[in-house]
Amino acid sequence: MRYGLQFRDVFAAWESLLGGVYITLLLSAFAMLGGLTIGIICAAARVYGPRWLKGIAAGYVEIIRNTPLLVQLFLIFFGLPSFGIRLDGLTAAILALVINLGAYAAEIVRAGFEAVPKAQIEAGHSLGLSGLQFHAASIIQSRTFRDFEVYTVIGVLYLGLAFAFRGLFAGVYFWVFARR
């Protein structure tokens, strides 16, 4: 059976894709702001806080860094309603990302406080822009049934976003540190 690739249907749903990009950017912005805030508080607690606070902060960082983001998301979205806390998908996603990123940010900020050079290869990756696939994909898929094309387009969109943000951050970095 020949399978002709049909990207036209996917592009026809550009409004859904655009909506997905918007949600991705929204999630990323919240995750970065919230995560960095928690990270700074947490790092300060680990370096300057009393012993019990250090313990709590260290425990938080270890638990988050050694469990998958997906399981953290499930705990918040499916688990919290057991305690009467019912969150919509977007709120749960933001909460999970903030908590997750906070732990990684805490390690980076602490390394800065202590001026200890650390291999931070993994840290940036939890920053991965999440969310696009959950939203845009489900909307488009229900219309086109063309999974491969949908996810290829989404992959390219992510690549574009990653490219844009790398450029943006490199530019900001240059502007802040290198220009004087």
């Binding site: 469990t67 997906l70 399981v71 499930f74 705990l75 499916f78 688990g79 919290l80 057991s82």
Partner: peptide, 29 residues
């Protein structure tokens, strides 16, 4: 994780299930 999802669906105790799942990941990592 998938086993956790299935168990959570069967028991309606997602919090306990996913906490257990998280613990198992933690023990490995």
């Amino acid at each position: 994780t998938r086993e956790g999802q299935l168990t959570a669906a069967g028991t309606y105790m997602p919090f306990a299930v996913f906490t257990t799942v998280a613990c198992i990941y933690f023990v490995m990592c």
